[in-house]
Amino acid sequence: MNTIAEKKLNETFMAGSCSPANKRLFSAVVSVNKQIGRRFFRLELEFSAADAEVLANCQPGQFAQLDLSATALPPAEAIPENLVDVASRKILLRRPFSFADVTVKGDKTFVDILYCVVGPASLRMTTVSAGDSVSVIGPLGNGFCVPEGKSITLLVSGGMGAGPLLYLAKVLTADYPQLEVIAFAGAKTASQLPFEARLDEISQQLGFSLGEFAKYGVESIVATDDGSAGFAGLVTNCLTEWLDRHTLAAKDMIIYSCGPEAMLARVAEIAEERKLDCQLSMERMMACGIGLCQSCAVECKATDSSETTYKLCCKDGPVFNSREVTFSL
């Protein structure tokens, strides 16, 4: 795994941009589809040896489009009340999911996706089981990059945004042993943290640490809006307090963030105020994921004028430099 990871981000670094591996249409086999807590699931997909190389070279921050249109609904009693009406709707389009992990075991490659049930497609997704085939298009978009000269990376997630940052944590710790990696995981409330394992025994000052990050040797700091776990308040407030407490040179640090748009906007502001490098993984409704439909526009500052321009989340992103994005909230 180390060699693959190394190749990945080093290539990125050498090229100065995150050139993605060739995208393709795959048929993957579900190996695990497991519920985590009340709202979250982890889907693990297995790719055959013939397909493994393309997937093994994908980068943290990249994503895949899954076709869930032929997937069955769960039984009526398992459908949350707020989704009863939309559950009957047929699914047409694929749905985008970031990679939460990619592992190579022998000649097989396994890809993890973290998801929560928010609509008719993710509701159906809960019913796929080990052995089922899923049509996947990927790897798509551009992943996170590591600029030269950084020694501290801060991963800031909100809710499901933790997915791509888990994979990033793995690759950063494997490839850049000199980097200190700290994860800030936020959610509205403790039950909305998309994690399985709590490792209180190795916990830091806040008494709540996440096994998913700890297994890569990454310290995690939890924040919940309602104070039900970790820091009481927004994860962005937790981040600013941490930054206030640690006198570090801005040029040594970089923030990687993924989560709700309002959170990303605030993270971008914090980065701007403190002159920190910052990369954001954005989310948009998208039809194709491969740059055809032009649906997933992200408003960005134009380089040559005061006007704004639209970039595509699927093709130009989903990872953007925080300085280029224009938030309208």
Binding site: L92, L93, A297
Partner: peptide, 23 residues
């Protein structure tokens, strides 16, 4: 052409609406 503001698409039953705006 920049095209329209987002959201530009929404899925419907067996279809989708797009309003890209000739970007």
């Amino acid at each position: 052409r920049k095209g329209n503001a987002t959201p530009r698409i929404v899925e419907t039953d067996s279809g989708m609406l797009n309003a890209i705006g000739l970007a």
